[in-house]
Design a protein around this nucleic acid. Structure first.
Lengths: 170, 170
DNA sequence: TCTTATGGTTCTAAAATCGAACTGTAAAAT
DNA sequence: ATTTTACAGTTCGATTTTAGAACCATAAGA
């Protein structure tokens, strides 16, 4: 399975990984949620090479996660801000941070606390069932094929009917 | 910032990315949650090269995400199963799947549905505040430094006091 | 005029990944 | 008895990605 095939996989996880599944992209998105908007800002905060940063930003714009907005002319300058599609990545980011808070902190404790404006308290993100509101864990969930599932073909990677050349973005 | 520096960053997200922040690792973990346990199973489901698979499994075991359990002698064979630390990745996986379900499905719909055993219904995962139970979104959250935050040094990547050579696992 | 700020692009070297073959044990098939 | 299959890797050369640094371009400021 190559990278440009990921988005064609009949699996929402594989497709999402095709968008955010590399280290720099996730760190760039972290910066976005921390209100970084400009090339220099990303570059100095992350230490990413300018080359890769330019490429990743382009990709995120192409996929509709970021929007490229001019904020001055001559020289043309742009800011990168999250679209709604990008903002919707927030639960993923928070889940990642929370796992790190739980399993990867050192003796000093958490680097960052999160305060819920509505209730005023520092919180952890909790995943619940949209239907009954109860906390979810892996063992309480049963998965079964949905309408977009691939037809059960012989095993092996990807689908049998080679769906090449049908590239679409977002 | 190199990969082996990620786990030393004062950021739970960076540290977590050091563990799961590459494409193959995330796909391997997807298979784990789908009950795959053996080398051949991962390999044929994913099409990953055996070389990389062996390396990634080793890494996940070293980091305490998977446990390597013998299931027969001569020849020695092992299964890879999620530890509690690994099971705790579930909210991340579900958040990733849910984003894909929302933004990356084609006209046919979702490849996979999730049913909550307790209430019996197909559900979406929802992220709520652990303190008040309300649904969370990025704009309602304020972040501030916690005890493990790095002391504000001059800007630039990572900390000023080069913390090299202080490698620890998990 | 020289320096700085910003947002890139280009280039070479190093690292990661791919793809395929190979190793080794033991059960099953011929 | 010999060959084939299943499984779990390891090894190795070729390809692709990433790192690191320099370079280009525009305009403001010293």
């Amino acid at each position: 399975m190559r990278w440009d095939e990921l988005e064609e996989e009949p699996c929402s996880m594989a497709r999402t990984i095709g968008v955010i599944g590399d280290r720099w992209t996730l760190l760039i998105l972290r910066e976005c949620f921390l209100r970084t908007r400009r090339f220099e800002g990303f570059q100095s905060a992350l230490g990413i090479t300018r080359h890769l940063l330019a490429e990743r930003l382009k990709k995120l714009v192409r996929l509709g996660v970021l929007r490229r907005i001019p904020y001055q002319d001559s020289p043309k300058r742009h800011e990168y801000i999250l679209t709604q599609k990008g903002l919707d990545l927030y639960p993923i980011m928070m889940a990642i941070v929370h796992w790190g808070d739980t399993h990867m902190v050192d003796e000093r404790g958490r680097p960052l606390l999160h305060q819920h404006r509505k209730c005023g308290k520092n919180f952890d993100p909790v995943m619940v069932c949209s239907e009954c509101g109860e906390t979810l864990s892996a063992k309480e969930v049963h998965t079964h094929p949905g309408p977009g599932a691939r037809v059960a073909s012989a095993k092996g990677p990807a689908s049998a009917t080679k769906t090449k050349a049908r590239r679409r973005a977002a």
